[in-house]
Design a protein around this nucleic acid. Structure first.
Lengths: 223, 223
DNA sequence: GAAACAATCTAATTATTATTAGATTGTTTG
DNA sequence: CAAACAATCTAATAATAATTAGATTGTTTC
């Protein structure tokens, strides 16, 4: 085999991964799967698309070996094939954010004003959370919290937040986070809590971003 | 704008980068550009494709903001729009290598047997190069060496290697590197030198891989 | 074993993208 | 300013991919 043909083969393989990353729906699937394993149904509901379309996109991700499946009764459960896949998603998003003005503009238009964003660096945030100077809440669904969450964070799913207001302090700043910069859960939590007079800000990181920055997360022991 | 539409916009933007990474030719262009800026002609020659096809792919990369151009006389010079782009390419390749058996198989079939690969970790290699216990040679074209190269490496372009054999030691191990694991220059250098009785091994890293590992490289001052 | 349900498969339509080759634009050089 | 050259543009064709909806495959539950 000549050198050109050999090289073509190599880049062809990497392009399989690139192709998998070339669809918005598949990217969103990866981000949701980065929070923990999910059924096809749950994923379709999360993206608000037909189960059959979700299944087709998941098939593409599986053929690129970015996700793997296992069967649990009548459910098919998908998960990322490795932590490096979440890292790749984060890196891709970071490059997009760094170079695409359109993305930054779109992000700003849906996100809180900068004042409501946590401005501390991550190590400092961690230290304050450890000391109890701030309360970090994880507003994702509980199963995602259980899979992995930031150190010192407590679970406070958005769906339950209104019933559990008495668990939150009024004399201390609250920091809410969710799945990452594209996730609107913490945004919504922020608005609901601020309306009720809590001092609350938002951390745009999710677990994957936190981990990509080299910081530790707390994980459930493997099943 | 409702939440679904807002989210769709965000993932759509990131998918622009993913689409740019979905073609083998564009990936190869990125890898070559990670070695330094190049004209369209040079890139087309490197990939062995028509200039017009190269131009079309470069246009796609430019629209995804992964590359930028400047004009120099009648030449149009392309370069990566940032170091993060090279980092993304490396990460993408690493994920592909980790998950795609086909890629690992293809790599093995074109690369030297494992004995000829450097097995030291990078820090150790750096230390030995500093001490002069090994000689590190950069077999890429000279302009790429000048843009950036590994610490303590000397330039020894493959095209000149046969004329400059007397500059290489026979009493000390030589380590050759090129553009990265997909580049065959160091492979070719290895064969030519081994045939002449040099003790030579290959480092599969290129400058981007080295840098992605957090290690320092030597760079020409910006023009 | 039949009904219910999750997921996938198939086939059709629509939309994008890659590639090729001729025509054109912009820049330098004599 | 004409010739030479680099690069891009345009238009045509071929190849791939996204989406939709009906049919089918597994698995559980009664």
């Amino acid at each position: 085999m000549d050198k050109r043909t050999a090289k073509d083969l190599l880049y062809e393989q990497v392009a399989r991964i690139g192709k998998a990353l070339s669809s918005p729906k598949r990217l969103e699937l990866l981000e949701v799967l980065a929070q923990g394993e999910k059924t096809v149904e749950a994923l379709a509901a999360e993206l608000d698309i037909d189960v059959r379309l979700a299944s087709a996109h998941l098939k593409a991700l599986r053929e690129a070996r970015l996700v793997v499946t296992r069967r649990a009764g009548k459910y098919m459960i998908y998960r990322l094939s490795g932590g490096d896949v979440a890292g790749l998603w984060v890196k891709l998003r970071e490059v997009a954010e760094a170079h695409l003005v359109e993305l930054r503009v779109a992000l700003q238009s849906i996100t809180a004003d900068p004042q409501q964003l946590v401005s501390l660096d991550r190590a400092e945030l961690l230290e304050q959370a450890r000391r109890g100077a701030i309360i970090v809440i994880d507003v994702r669904p509980q199963d995602e919290y259980q899979t992995a969450h930031l150190p010192y964070a407590r679970s406070m799913p958005l769906a339950e937040i209104e019933q559990r207001l008495d668990e939150l302090p009024r004399d201390c700043e609250i920091v809410a986070y969710c799945r990452g910069p594209f996730c609107l859960l913490s945004e919504e939590a922020l608005q609901r809590l601020a309306r009720r007079g809590f001092r609350v800000r938002k951390l745009s990181d999710g677990v994957s971003e936190w981990q990509a920055a080299g910081l530790p997360v707390e994980r459930a022991a493997a099943a």
